[in-house]
Nucleic acid binder design. Structure first.
Lengths: 356, 356
DNA sequence: TTGCGCTCCGAAACCGGTTTCGGTTAGCCT
DNA sequence: AGGCTAACCGAAACCGGTTTCGGAGCGCAA
């Protein structure tokens, strides 16, 4: 029914009051009589008055909006965690009637330019960034701009800013320890390029646990590959060609692990029996792989909410350093982990094949 | 280096000009000498001037922002297509330096209130909505508000507004025809609640193709269930308990199909051999299921871009009715489709067991 | 030289809110 | 009755841009 754009002026005219009075009435100022406040509120409701946010925010001097910088994806496949994160951020900001602005940049330098524009033009009062590099230029920029921000993940020097992360070091140490306790001693790691902190952390956890277990760290058993199922398949294929192949593989993500499963099956081996595989993420989809994937599950669903709440608190003046949250991943055993095969390597008749 | 917030006034003072001159210079008005324009542009660049968007948009009278209403998820799992869509929308708006605002509502009525607020408060100049119901109140509301919008999917009466959709009727007819050509005659359908148009379309395509193939439409073979893997598992379980169970199942989505695979395996049957299963979506993840899932793949990646471009065109004045795009899904054969088992039903010794 | 038109820029209104400041009225006290 | 305070509301400045309008300065023709 109500048509477009009922302005404050129109509302005031309708009430026989001035705009200033109506504005103060709606915003609960005490120098407006309760009766008037009530009357104004009712009229505003009936006419469906919605204050123009551009005007309001200009006047207020605050954008009442936070931004999320979508990570760029290697493949065309957007990562499912992004949708979850955005949903969580949305919930957090909606509680305050703020807005969530999602921004996507084509390249890393574009991204820096975007950040600059976003904050300098007053469009956002704070930013959430994902997947930081070990040394991330975005963070320096945001500091220079004095723009509140929170990081989903950490940089190498995790101090001085707010972040929410899952402890990849611990998770991968736990994964290794689990495999060791099953009896494995040749354990491989399939990771991805180490610019991203998460990739380095997971490798660190792996190496640390291997060392702590008294195993020798065999460089052959560490594969760095593309962050995708295809990458996992290639890397696992390489590992299986080794003269002394691993009996278990821990993978930097579930997608990578799924690729590894393919390679293992292709080789005529049975994942979980001949070769154990551990993933990381806890994707629901892992329940349906062949066989169902054992994984270190991280508590995804709350990340967005927490990051949103943290950022809002910081914008309100909280000390960023007070908002650093480290979550733990949890082992979810399905069917790709088991003791090492008692008759190892018998299948590797073709080991000496030429590797182009 | 450049500190926060260089205002137009500051820039003008620095140049010894007035704000109006500087503004017109930056916006390329012809009544400013080329020399001045150049001088202003250089200074703006050096000082890192970014016009305050709240002020600009207030003055302009246009929000230069489009909104996306995130669909609410049944489970806690956000659907992967959402991230892709958002990315595509982001690319489309970034070309124009517009913004993308993502909004999330807790309930259907909240969502209507959100829409009202979003457009009446001048925060968005257009909206994208996903997953319409057969009769979707959001569309009526948007019409009343005279707010440009595009729909990802369609309502029952697909006329009068702009949409982008994949032809579910045709896709499911094709799925059935494929199975029929393999020799199947008892084909089941696992769908989800029919309020959503896409669910109804897919069922329609199924029924139509079944009829066209001269098969009798057995109501027992149509299962309506939860839109998730668990739903698929339950429904497939029911189907397998039938006295005369189906030899093939077409599923409303890949996730549902994955659940069906579980049920089939649990029953001791071999998907793709004893029972064929077809999914819908073309999720990459289906390559890793057990066995890899045959599916009708829809062209996901471009949806966001197209919807964004369409909406921008409509905001520019295009007739919405001119922007209706129907894409086709494509059969991707993996390993869950095959001819019906030559020795059917032999496994069904336990058919007469009590059902809960 | 005067007048006309053109080029270029400044003054000011405006977008729609918020907020400060000041003024009117009523009530209360002495 | 006069004066003081408190309660309540209106006028106007302001946020930072855009845009209309008008005027100054100049060149050129009459």
């Amino acid at each position: 029914m109500a048509r477009q754009a009922v302005s404050l002026k129109a509302l005031a005219a309708h009430l026989g009051l001035t705009v200033s009075t109506v504005s103060r009435a709606l915003n609960g100022y005490s120098d407006i009589s309760a009766k008037t406040r009530e009357r104004v509120a009712r009229a505003a409701d009936e006419l469906g008055y919605r204050p123009n946010q551009n005007a309001r925010r200009l006047s207020i001097g605050a954008p009442e909006t936070i931004g999320y910088l979508m990570p760029r994806f290697s493949g065309s496949e957007a990562q499912p965690f992004v949708a979850q994160l955005i949903q969580g951020l949305g919930e957090a900001v909606t509680k305050r009637q703020w807005d969530l602005l999602v921004s996507h940049a084509a390249s890393a330098s574009d991204e820096l330019a975007q950040i600059d524009r976003l904050v300098r033009s007053g469009r956002v009062g704070g930013l959430v960034i994902s997947r930081p590099l070990k040394n991330d230029p975005r963070i320096n920029l945001l500091r220079d701009l004095k723009c509140p921000f929170v990081v989903h993940g950490r940089t190498a020097s995790s101090g001085g800013y707010a972040w929410y992360d899952v402890d990849g070091v611990e998770a991968f140490a736990a994964a290794v320890n689990h495999l060791v306790s099953l009896g494995h001693s040749r354990i491989a790691f399939i990771g991805t390029t180490l610019q991203h902190t998460f990739a380095q952390d997971r490798l660190n956890g792996f190496e640390q646990a291997v060392a702590d277990s008294g195993l020798t760290l065999d460089r052959e058993l560490i594969q760095i590959t593309d962050f995708s199922d295809d990458g996992g398949e290639v890397a696992a294929g390489q590992l299986l060609e080794l003269v002394d192949p691993p009996t278990a593989m821990v993978c930097v993500s579930d997608m990578v692990a799924l690729g590894a499963l393919s390679a293992i099956r292709r080789k005529g081996l049975r994942p979980g029996i001949d070769v154990s595989v551990l993933g990381y993420d806890g994707l629901k989809i892992g329940e349906h792989s062949n066989p169902p994937l054992t994984t270190m599950a991280q508590p995804q669903s709350q990340a967005g909410r927490r990051l949103g709440d943290m950022l809002l608190a910081i914008i309100d003046g909280d000390d960023p350093k007070k908002h650093q949250e480290l979550q733990r991943a949890q082992l979810v055993r399905r069917n790709t982990d088991g003791p090492p095969c008692s008759v190892p390597h018998e299948n590797h008749v073709s080991v000496r094949e030429e590797q182009q």
